[in-house]
């Protein structure tokens, strides 16, 4: 709970990555990762929303009564999402055209409500804001990882702009593209393999530095997250 910026970032991006470890926010992860540019746009929008919603919720945490806290959080979050949506529409129309409906849908992105409930409502404004940025960075990192694979295999190009033009051709002009990777099925496949790869890498690193305290901390964090998701599955 201490305002240790480095630890917060490590936690948000690696140890408790919202997508790879907590498996939160799957909807935008699957839907907006057809191109790296889209992933970056979505990630930036989420970082801004998380930062401001965490800050406001943290500032208001002693005023908001427990009984109406979820309603209050949602009002605050949706306010910031709408503001971000308007700003994107005004200044980045091509990103708006590519992401479309998924910007307003950030309101129901469970990462944001989860951080509000789990962190911002219990911590002071500065650490809450940093937590928002760290978690958002982790989300963006995950989106870019998935989008990189999907765009590369799906179109043979990388870093194409949001309207599909430009980009760095990796496999040459003769590559016909594998549209499956741009379709939902490819999103699930890619996400599964990317999560598996990340977990493997994480476990290898864990084994190498088993004696170090930091590794233990991240492992228990992973364990808690897995237990949580397991319980959720059982409920449904």
């Amino acid at each position: 709970m201490k305002s240790n910026v480095g630890k917060q970032f490590k936690d948000g991006v690696i140890a408790n990555n919202p997508v790879f470890v907590q498996l939160l926010g799957m909807c935008p992860t699957l839907a907006t990762t057809t191109a790296v540019v889209n992933a970056l746009g979505m990630g930036a929008a989420v970082i801004v929303v998380l930062m401001f919603s965490n800050l406001f919720i943290s500032l208001l945490r002693k005023i908001i009564p427990k009984q109406v806290r979820i309603a209050s959080y949602i009002v605050i979050i949706s306010g910031f999402v709408t503001a971000v949506e308007l700003i994107i529409k005004a200044f980045f129309p091509s990103i708006d055209a590519a992401l479309g409906l998924f910007i307003p849908l950030i309101v129901v992105n469970c990462i944001i409500l989860a951080r509000a409930e789990a962190f911002a409502s219990k911590n002071r404004p500065m650490p809450s804001m940093i937590d928002g940025i760290a978690t958002g960075a982790g989300f963006t990192f995950a989106l870019v990882c998935v989008a990189f694979v999907r765009e590369l295999l799906g179109t043979g190009k990388i870093f194409a702009s949001a309207d599909g033009t430009g980009g760095l051709s990796v496999f040459g002009g003769g590559y016909p593209g594998a549209p499956i990777f741009l379709l939902p099925a490819g999103a699930f496949l890619t996400l599964g393999f990317v999560i598996a790869a990340v977990q493997k890498i994480a476990s290898v690193i864990d084994k190498r530095s088993q004696n170090k305290k930091t590794a233990e901390a991240s492992e228990t964090a992973c364990g808690v997250a897995r237990d949580l998701s397991y319980n959720e599955d059982e409920d449904t």
């Binding site: 208001l60 005023i63 908001i64 009564p65 009984q67 109406v68 309603a71 209050s72 009002v75 605050i76």
Partner: peptide, 8 residues
């Protein structure tokens, strides 16, 4: 409760 939610 009502006042806080309205104010927000």
């Amino acid at each position: 409760l009502v006042a806080v939610l309205t104010a927000i």
